[in-house]
Design a protein around this nucleic acid. Structure first.
Lengths: 367, 367
DNA sequence: AGCTGCTAATAATGCGCATCATCAGATTGA
DNA sequence: TCAATCTGATGATGCGCATTATTAGCAGCT
């Protein structure tokens, strides 16, 4: 039959001390000036060993304030059925950080995904409260919901840059601008002049940043920006040929593999005739195993950094700090502005899809 | 500024009722003969809506209620860094089920993965208590830990068949035996006689079940069982050629792709000269895109079914039911034995790696 | 003896919630 | 008219723990 759990009180009884003493021994630190003699300490530890006592986490949390649980809210299904999982690398990083922090991760799956996106409905958002704080992943966030989070001072961190709200939203993002700039630099160093940008217009942050990087870099090199924005991959390939581009930078969602196929079909080989640089992670690995040149997004690190940041925000807002602050109002905020908005470098990927333009002087090969 | 959590007491104050009343309204059922008028009920619900109240799961658990949180414990890292994610499909199914049940999923990431496997240490296993129940994934479970779970009557469900404990462990598994038998049947129907089994010996359940299926099916057809168990893929291929097998069944962890390569190198083509059937999910997609013949493991469904089962166990074992049972000892267990051990069918995959044996009469092609 | 200072421990409190025992008031029955 | 019943709600309690406030005991000093 269900054995009753061993509690601190049981341990205390066996050791001939009070429950409080057991708690002190277990926590080591004694906030007030409480002291425990080495002898008593050993008696308690022995009793713990004999009884096999283990703390009840629910009670610990109730008493302590923090649950040691951090939430993860994804605006789309976390584990999508069809496509390659987008969240996977982030979660890997998050899991790793969670281990190090000793916290558990709560996935908010109770809010249903409707229409491909998960809404932070009243019920859904209320459940956020079960975690000490929350990570937010995905593009399709909802303004009103965010406002609510800000208003209630609920600790959260976005994964992915959020430029829209005047710096009020904490995030850990990737440097798409810088990454894109470096790709252009690379091409120019190889001797390329006619460099096109292939990608659909969009208002999402990565797209805006890629375009910004492209514009800035081209301008800095005194080159003309040329955008190719076509629904059809075949048409895009045709346009590239028509415009006699020697290189293009492509957003990963623009089917680079198919694009390369179409180019080959038109007698242009990659990278011999046209260099193709990918501005971010490819959605699928290449058929022939050779990698795309371009830059990669440090998704695992983003996940980990975001969780660390969240953890800091939480403990700053936590009950202990709360009390400390009441006593000493001058205490500065522990989390600095710089920490609140982190942009991580996107490392270059050497890859196999970049080469000097056809007919370039041999010297241009070695930048 | 300080964001104190909204509690039932706050809600009660706003609605002009007692905390107990709020609790009753929230829980719907009223264990004792307590009644709440519709009007009061609405006032409370309004106050909840306005304040955005959320129950504190720790307190709920401590007080003996349900937190609507189900845990997922994986014996290996949930999101592995390098290899293809093994847990992915399971989690997809789990997430889907969680949505339908309206529960959140707690990943027990606080227990660190040491040596490739996560231990349900003293501390770790404590933390299970936050969730109402828990799903267990992975091969490397630890006996003592499981015993502890059983002793304390904590609700849990294994994903993957567990034959070892005399039917005391609830699980949702896959029918490797039946799947393997059907593969042999398939081959025999095609006219194959010399059918080898390629795979390393092991004590894990899938391996035991594959071997059992192979043995039973070969025996039923009056054929001789032949095992190939070699570390080296090349040696395995050589053995297959030597033994003049016309077909082999292979466990997915035995590098079937490399095996096929080695066979080709020795002048045996798949499937023209040797049919190869895979006993489970391939670890990697095939290079040429054509699928392995064999059977697949319904991992998503396993995840979903396991979560549903766990949900049932939880509500059966919940504090409410507990008390009901005390009053009426004759009440039958709500979860039947059959539900406790579910074996799901592994659907055949047609694939492109099976054919009649070379030199077989044409009629044998159409079973 | 009276006081201070120090060590070692305990009693008491509250975290937020579910639940049991109880109670006030309204309605009914005889 | 007064007890019996029913309705609608409240107060009190405890879950197991962390933490604060308090006490008991004792040595050293004046």
């Amino acid at each position: 039959m269900p054995r009753r759990r061993i509690t601190q009180t049981d341990v205390a009884a066996m050791a001939g001390v009070s429950q409080a003493t057991v708690s002190f021994v277990l926590n080591g630190s004694t906030p007030a000036g409480v002291r425990i003699s080495e002898e008593t300490r050993q008696r308690v530890l022995d009793a713990i060993r004999i009884t096999g006592y283990t703390a009840n986490p629910a009670a610990q949390r109730l008493a302590g304030g923090l649950a040691q649980i951090l939430g993860v809210f994804t605006y789309e299904a976390t584990f999508p059925r069809a496509s390659r999982d987008f969240y996977g690398p982030f979660l890997t990083g998050i899991e790793h950080a969670a281990e190090r922090l000793g916290v558990d991760i709560l996935l908010f799956t109770s809010a249903p995904v409707a229409d491909g996106r998960r809404r932070l409905t009243r019920d859904g958002w209320q459940r956020l409260g079960v975690a000490d704080g929350c990570l937010l992943l995905g593009q399709h966030e909802h303004r009103g919901e965010l406002q609510h989070l800000l208003d209630t001072n609920y600790p959260f961190v976005f994964i992915g840059k959020r430029g829209s709200d005047g710096g009020r939203l904490p995030y850990v993002g990737a440097d798409y601008v810088g990454g894109t700039v470096r790709q252009i630099d690379r091409l120019v160093a190889h001797g390329h002049q006619r460099i096109g940008y292939v990608g659909m217009r969009g208002t999402d942050q990565p797209t805006l940043d890629r375009v910004e990087g492209y514009r800035d870099a081209m301008k800095a090199h005194g080159l003309t920006t040329r955008f190719v924005e076509l629904e059809d991959v075949a048409a895009t390939a045709a346009e590239i040929v028509d415009q006699r581009f020697t290189a293009v930078v492509v957003a990963p969602e623009n089917h680079p593999e198919e694009l390369a196929d179409e180019l080959e079909r038109r007698g242009r080989r990659v990278p011999d005739d046209v260099s193709v640089l990918l501005l971010g992670q490819p959605h699928h690995p290449r058929r022939d195993g050779r990698q795309w040149s371009g830059f990669s997004v440090p998704r695992e690190e983003m996940g980990a950094r975001a969780l660390y940041l969240l953890s800091r925000l939480v403990s700053d807002d936590g009950p202990r700090r709360e009390r400390e602050r009441e006593r000493d109002a001058r205490r500065p905020a522990a989390v600095t502005e710089a920490e609140l908005h982190q942009i991580l470098v996107c490392p270059d990927v050497e890859g196999a899809t970049v080469a000097p333009p056809a007919g370039a002087p041999p010297g241009a090969d070695a930048p």
